[in-house]
């Protein structure tokens, strides 16, 4: 039932009152607004300005035009870092998504103590890139590590290879570490899976669908908005990955784990070339934006919304 109310002419006083409510609303979001302006917008645009300067953080910035961007083209390590980062993102994102989804599927089955398992599997994400993890990683994948021990035991020969220290494999050991941090995507998958109506599966069961068919034709499509969200998040986070490389390998050996964000950090905070670091940050922003736009555009064809 609806009633049509004719709007009375707005009086001067009413208008003032409405303006007051608006102001009150702004007052309420003021802390957030100040935060956004002071801690995000201003530094962001200041960094855009700095990217056109030579700035060592101690003296005043000197305007040098597009020199930082030109230098980048001639910087071998810049290209190396870009290549390493692309490899890292393209391998890590699908692997992490798959492992998060797989674990989420297992953790949505009805078993005793499943809540405990959900918590346990989230723990690695909390540990993140800490020094302890670096040492554990060096121990597991080092020359005399547990990983080689397993290979030696299985193959019956003494196997010694430093997976985290050799040029050819160091990056893969970091990708493996990244996969291990699947916790937050997993939790989102778990809640997504729980929202799929049970009636879908019941209908499929009646039609005689096998588990794979149920997964392929019900779970995946129904979950696609969640996959989409995790994919975008995953891509952005993988491009920004930094602490693992800093703490475990410090970009070595021979820059084979020099992730882009780590190189930005080195230029900015080790060599104090803040202007150059800011310029690289903006390049990273553009790259991430392009990928995000691409994923958003492609989503029309594979993401299914319920409505």
């Amino acid at each position: 039932m609806t009633t049509i109310v004719k709007r009375p002419p707005v009086s001067q006083a009413a208008r003032a009152r409405r303006r007051n409510t608006n102001l009150a609303g702004y007052a309420f979001i003021l802390p957030w607004l100040i935060g956004l302006i002071v801690f995000t917008s201003v530094p962001m645009f200041y960094s855009l300005y700095l990217s056109f300067t030579k700035y060592d953080a101690l003296g005043a910035p000197q305007w040098i035009g597009v020199n930082n961007y030109v230098n980048m083209v001639q910087d071998d390590t810049f290209w190396k870092a870009l290549g390493v980062t692309f490899k890292y993102v393209f391998l890590l994102v699908p692997l992490r998504l798959a492992s998060a989804l797989a674990v989420a599927l297992v953790l949505t089955t009805n078993h005793k103590g499943i809540g405990l398992y959900r918590t346990v599997y989230y723990v690695p994400s909390l540990l993140g890139g800490s020094v302890a993890i670096a040492i554990i990683w060096a121990r597991i994948f080092g020359s005399n590590g547990a990983f080689n021990g397993i290979i030696s035991a299985l193959s019956g020969t003494v196997f010694s290879f430093n997976w985290v220290g050799e040029i050819s494999t160091a990056l893969y050991s970091l990708i493996l570490l990244g996969c291990w941090h699947f916790g937050s995507s997993m939790l989102i998958f778990v809640s997504g899976i729980k929202q799929i109506p049970a009636s879908y599966y019941e209908a499929a069961l009646l039609d005689g669908a096998n588990p794979w068919q149920k997964f392929r034709y019900i779970t995946l499509p129904a979950l696609s908005p969640v996959i989409f969200f995790n994919l975008v998040q995953g891509i952005i986070n993988a491009f920004k990955a930094f602490s693992e490389a800093l703490i475990i390998t410090d970009g070595g050996p021979l820059n084979s784990t020099m992730l882009f964000a780590l190189y930005i950090y080195k230029q900015g905070f080790s060599y104090f070339k803040m202007g150059y670091a800011c310029a690289m940050s903006w390049v990273l922003l553009v790259i991430i934006s392009i990928f995000s736009i691409f994923v958003f555009k492609s989503s029309d064809s594979w993401v299914h919304y319920e409505s």
């Binding site: 990683w137 220290g165 050996p253």
Partner: peptide
């Protein structure tokens, strides 16, 4: 081995 000094 040099690979063993990658991680400090």
């Amino acid at each position: 081995n040099v690979a063993d000094v990658t991680v400090d």
